[in-house]
Every structure is written in structure tokens, then in C-alpha cells.
Amino acid sequence: MKRRRFIATCVVSAAFTGGMLTACNQGGTGTADSDGAQTLVMATSADYPPYEFVETSGGTEEIVGFDVDIARGIAERLGYEVEINNIDFNGLIPALQAGRADFVMAGMTPTEDRKQNVDFSEIYYEAQQTIVSQQNSGISTPEDLAGKQIGVQLGSIQERLAKDLQEEGGIAMEIVQLNRINEIVQEIKAGRIDAAIIEDAVAEGFLQANPDLQVAVIPAEGPSGSAIAFPKDSELVDDFNTALAEMQASGEIEELVNKWFRDRGN
């Protein structure tokens, strides 16, 4: 796929600094480069494969994944360049509110709470939530989480789901909040937590690399699926929705689903 009008990370160099993959141009949102093309800032939490993650090749780090390819497709249609900032998930909506990003793509579910603070595009991918634990843990349903320590990503839909299971489902479990999914998986493997709630596509990627783990699907209740988040009243929403509809109609979204969710590891 062509890569024109898209900047995944700094073209010259990029480095991790305080948990952020920092791009060259930090001059704010909606800037124009030397040839007049407008650059939009996309904020993400690049620890969520296959949606977004950091890939290292030849000493160069680049953020890649399903969301990144969709952003590339939208950018090509609308004539933008895109700069990606990598921050913790719980900082994504504050980044929009503070004007440090034009949009967020991070496998984010458009919950009613989030809609009070940001606007969303149409859903571009539906997913399920799962429980990940060690093999032979005896955990196969939400009820099996009672009395256990459960890891969730801070600020995520999985954190909200865990709290709902506590408050509405009456499941007495301890919720352990962590910033990144790989940290959560390592905590399971080390036996410091009993299980975690992770989206199915993300969990599948970690299971391929960790056959000592198992997964169980949680029946869906309430909002699900991923959408693009924008600052309130952003003029980009309609244009992005149009581009997403074109990508759906052309089969491009389905091709990316096959690439990132079905073909990886085969």
C-alpha cells in the first residue's frame, strides 16, 4: 500500500522519552509542512497489537497496526499527512481536550461517559472482550473472577467492564490497574495477578506468543466496537466518516481486518 501523505513516526529519528514515542514536529495540531500539506496529530497508545504497536526494524522504531493503516487510508483520501504521538491510554482523551491531538485511534469504544468529553466517528470494527489467565486456572466465566486479582488497562473499556462486574454483577474481585497490556500479561505470567480482561483480537496476539495462557469470551453487554475520537465539535468528524464509509464500501477495511486479525501468525 502506498505511504504518501503519512508520517507514522519522525522521518529522521524517533526515541522513547518518558513513555512517549516523540515525533520531530511537535508544533501543535493542524500544521502545514513545506509543500503545503496539512498535518494532523493522531494520539494513540501503541501497546495494543494488532491495533497499534511499536515495531523495530534495522534499529528504527515505527508505530504500525490496524488503526495506523486505517489512518493512512483516511489521510490519503482527505489529503492530509499524519503525525503519531504515543502516550498512555488514560492520557488520550485529555490530549484531545488540551488541543495536543486532532484525533485518537486506539481501539477505543465510544461509551456514553466518553461521549460527554469527545466526539466519535462511526464504529469501524466490532470486537469482544475476553478473560486471559494461565492455562488450567479454572477461570472460564466472569463469575470465576470472584476473590481474584484482575488486571485491566487504566482508562480502558475493560476497566469499566471490570467495575461493572463488581458493582452490578456482584463479583467481589480486586481490580489491578496498569498502563500497558504487555505489563498486564507479564503480571499474569509471573503469578502476581490471576487474570486480565483484554479485547479478543489483542488477546489472540499475546496467546500466540504465550501458549501457557488461555482465553475465555465474556458475553457482550452494553457498547462495543472501536471508533475514532475527536475534540468536541471537530470539523473532521464528517470527513472522516465519509472516508471510512468509502473504505468499507471498497472492501479496504475488510482487507485490513484480514491482514491484522486473521492472517497474522498463519
Rank of each mutant, 00 (worst) to 15 (best):
M1Y: 12
R4I: 02
F6P: 03
F16Y: 13
F16W: 13
A23F: 09
C24A: 11
Q38T: 09
Q38N: 10
V41M: 07
A43Y: 09
D47Y: 00
Y48P: 00
Y48C: 08
Y51P: 02
S57D: 12
I63L: 01
G65T: 08
A71N: 04
R72L: 07
E83P: 02
I84P: 01
F89I: 09
F89S: 12
L92V: 00
P94W: 00
A95K: 09
G99R: 09
G99C: 04
A101E: 13
G107L: 08
D113E: 14
Q116A: 08
V118D: 02
S121L: 07
Y124E: 03
E126D: 15
Q128G: 04
Q129G: 01
T130F: 00
V132N: 08
S133V: 01
G138D: 11
G138P: 10
G138A: 10
L145G: 05
S156Q: 06
I157K: 13
E159S: 06
A172N: 14
V185S: 07
K189W: 03
A190T: 10
G191Q: 08
G191M: 03
A196T: 07
A201E: 15
F206Q: 05
A209V: 07
P211Q: 13
V215T: 13
V217G: 06
P219T: 04
G225H: 09
I228H: 01
F230H: 02
F230Y: 08
S234I: 06
E235G: 08
V237N: 03
D239V: 00
A243Y: 12
Q248N: 12
A249I: 12
A249D: 14
S250L: 03
S250Q: 07
L256W: 10
L256T: 06
R262K: 08
N266W: 13
